[in-house]
Design a binder for these strands. Structure first.
Lengths: 339, 339
DNA sequence: TTGAAAGCGCTAACAC
DNA sequence: GTGTTAGCGCTTTCAA
């Protein structure tokens, strides 16, 4: 079944160490010998057993990636970045889907620890103490979370929130709802802070709603609450929620953006796919995945445990037709009568 | 750094084999001893090195999953099923994203082969001959492809196409466009066949368009072609394309479903998120992922190479408001005048 | 430039 | 019920 290094050695009539060298340190072996070895290996379809190699070198060539939910477009985009970059640097990805469960997150890191050179934790939901317990089991890099002095790739969604707020304020909106996602979301917290910080200068009043599930349904649910609070604009936690909001507004006969403006956060083009093009804060998820892999590997090369290095990635507001100046006759009353 | 079995043995004052047994065959060791061992292991934070274990047992406890594109909702849903099921049976998932490149598919299987117990190939795009070359390197299970006598999980999208066609025919549609996706897609081929087979009995004429990229843009592009052919209904390759179609129709002032009916294929609720709820053929992607993992593992348990076992999963038409009877004044002319 | 041998962390006979 | 020992496939001293 599995063709081993011994068979290649026998076939090429050399010792196993020569075969090994032909692969790992090619110029330490005679050109002719090497050619022969490589050829025999090719014929036999030999592929070094990376697990065995890892056992002795201590380097597996694998990296672990843990996401809260692969089916969430944000995280599948991030995963895409991780796998793509990993491939470029000849590494393989171990994937774990934590199913939005903090305990699973901790558990899987333990399970992977020994078979990987390090783990990328994407938006981990777990408690700081749990996170700290993981430190030392294997090199860790965080994405969109800043904790325990760990190296991290951080997206500046606080700044994105500011951009969105200023955009809406410039249009004349004075009362804006913020729909929160999962409480454990670092990015969500950043957005809220960015919003609060920017609101006074923009002369905007923010209405903080939630938490809601970061889903289509969460958006539907949130839309009614936002409507009842008489806002003229809504900032949704992510594109899924934003689409839910859009749908609920449509169902209630509220026009977007005539009656209410909507802004979401997305990764790629999810939101360009809505029938009413959705204004969004662009989160560079794929780039984040790539950066995380780099950070992890750089840290490993550099020496021991990587220094706590933070890589900030900018976010960008993409304005589309879901935002417009508020009506002069002010949203609230009209909207509530709308149905 | 990494705590080994030896340290646990020393700490518990037993031999390594006792520690090993305490983990792998608990009832072959004295209850008191076991308790002590487990406790010491706990304290030291010992986790067996699965790679080393695999080296001797020949079983890694890992399974490989190869997808054409993680960022595609179809495949992230399938991946979700794989990881969920894998976890339930205490396995870890090795993920590879082939970036829609057949060569990469073959390559990654080779790279993973030695570290996994088997590989799930999701909708592989590679040639039959390439696929055959992979057989033997590691146990393989196919999803949505039937080739080389390999075990496979197959979704009956041919039947889904039939259901969609009959639905549209029942509404009175007589001229229906089929928008093809990637030529290498087995599922696409199935749908086309299902359509062709069902069309005569339904007294329907099918207009076969494509191939198009299975994306939003592909749908935009396809919509114009379909319109020009004067159909009253459109069957899109997947939900992304369907949404593209919807958008382009809206942009051209064509009403859905008044002027044209649209049907897509989707996995979960993507299509319930469109502003005009989209009628779709439901593909059980997540269930497919789970089934594939089961098939792989069952085959391994059963004995040698798994028999070529096929698992067919049904598809289901979900009717929503994007389909309606065609206008009496017949779509074609009206629509073309529409803009 | 090459080979022989030790050993990575673990399990699986085979003794005791 | 427990310990000793021989490897799993590979890399890496150390000698030749």
């Amino acid at each position: 079944m599995a063709v081993t290094i011994h068979e290649v050695a026998k076939g090429a009539d050399v010792s196993v160490s020569t075969v090994s060298r032909a692969f790992t340190m090619p110029d330490m072996v005679n050109a002719a010998t090497r050619r022969k070895v490589l050829q025999v290996a090719e014929e036999l379809g030999y592929q070094p057993n990376r697990a065995a190699r890892g056992l002795v070198t201590g380097k597996t060539g694998n990296i672990g990636v843990v996401v809260p939910d692969v089916a969430n477009p944000f995280f599948s985009a991030m995963l895409k970045g991780c796998t793509a970059r990993a491939r470029e640097v000849r590494h393989v990805v171990f994937l774990a889907d934590a199913a939005e469960d903090p305990r699973v997150e901790a558990e899987v890191v333990g399970a992977m620890a020994k078979q990987v050179d390090g783990v990328v934790l994407c938006s981990p939901r777990m408690q700081p103490t749990q996170l700290e317990r993981l430190v030392g089991s294997t090199p860790l890099v965080l994405v969109n979370r800043d904790e325990a002095g760990l190296p991290a790739v951080l997206m500046d969604s606080g700044d994105g929130a500011r951009q969105a707020l200023e955009h809406l304020a410039a249009l004349g909106h004075r009362r804006i709802a913020h729909l929160a996602g999962p409480p454990a979301s670092w990015a969500g917290e950043q957005r809220l802070q960015g919003l609060r910080a920017a609101a006074p200068a923009c002369d905007v009043e923010t209405v903080e709603l939630g938490p809601f599930p970061p889903t289509f349904q969460g958006g539907v649910q949130a839309a009614d609450l936002a409507l009842a609070r008489g806002v003229t604009a809504i900032l949704a936690f992510n594109d899924l929620m934003a689409v839910g909001v859009l749908n609920r507004l449509a169902a209630r006969g509220v026009a977007v953006p005539a009656d209410i403006s909507v802004v979401g956060y997305d990764d790629i083009e999810m939101s360009s796919m809505t029938t009413v093009p959705l204004t969004t804060v662009r989160m560079p998820m794929e780039a984040g995945g790539r950066a995380a892999v780099d950070l992890l590997l750089d840290g490993l090369d550099a020496g021991i445990e990587p220094e706590a290095t933070h890589r900030w990635l900018p976010t960008q507001l993409i304005v589309r037709s879901t935002t417009a100046p508020p009506r002069q006759d002010s949203g609230s009353a009209r909207v509530l009568a709308g149905r």
